[in-house]
Design a protein around this nucleic acid. Structure first.
Lengths: 139, 139
DNA sequence: TCTAAGTTTACTAATTTACTTAGGAATGAA
DNA sequence: TTCATTCCTAAGTAAATTAGTAAACTTAGA
């Protein structure tokens, strides 16, 4: 099971918007892209998906750009992963009748563990860590 | 993050060997393949990987086949996933310097949650569930 | 020495990933 | 109303991965 860089880009982008919050000036794609080292044309597609899931909102035209649609404490990593992937962790063979039931239960347990971990982390927490010197973790 | 069917096949194969345990007659690839509905030629490659990681062992020649190399209670789902994939859950961008540290911490938390869940499940437990009628789960 | 098993390597079609490109549509200012 | 600036949408694509298939080889027992 390998995570795609798309999830990483999505979280970095939401982090950028969360760090900008509650400023009401929209952030342009180019600003997010250069700040977070994400290819701008790829980022567009990710932002569209995040928008369609109601996590962020956009403003067109001059002085346009992106803003969070909710407060950073009400957006979790799980929300972002579900927006850009189907699920936090997907097990396509859960719908496969040939997969034994006791093995399906294994996959569901791992799926729940990952999902619960992702749903516990909000972007408010991530922003707090970003603003804190890293040396604090070693005290 | 989508799990590949290879992981599923690997767990089904180890389950077959665990259910057969402690019988010392080796199980042939064809037996495992037909019992667990896995393409035999693909299963070969998976069994080789499990063998190279020391989870199962093989016997060549006539009356050859596969056996567990350890007892079912000492093999976890995590062991099998690490054998056929690099890791239970892989985040390639953890080695990417452009990924912010606070985001890396997010991935590590999800990774740990999935890994701990996978390491808690042994094949002895899976065999016990396989031998139990499914209706027991609803009592 | 025959034969039934595992072993190894190579090949491949289909899909997914991580983009790029090109143009269209909205917004606000001149 | 025109124009620059922004987001929006669709299509295309090279590279990698997935999920196999196939063929030749090795080993061990009868």
């Amino acid at each position: 099971m390998k995570a795609s860089i798309k999830s990483d880009y999505a979280c970095r982008a939401v982090e950028a918007l969360a760090l900008h919050h509650p400023d009401t000036r929209p952030l342009r794609i180019e600003e997010i892209a250069s700040e977070k080292a994400i290819p701008a044309n790829y980022l567009v597609q990710i932002l569209i998906e995040l928008k369609s899931k109601g996590l962020i909102r956009s403003q067109r035209g001059k002085a346009g750009g992106y803003l969070l649609a909710k407060t950073p404490d009400s957006i979790t990593v799980g929300d972002v992963l579900r927006a850009v992937q189907g699920d936090v962790l997907e097990f396509p063979f859960l719908r496969e009748p040939k997969c034994p039931e006791e093995i399906k239960r294994v996959w569901r347990r791992i799926q729940s563990a990952a999902e619960e971990a992702a749903d516990e982390i909000t972007f408010e927490q991530i922003c707090a860590e970003a603003n804190r010197p890293s040396s604090m973790y070693y005290i």
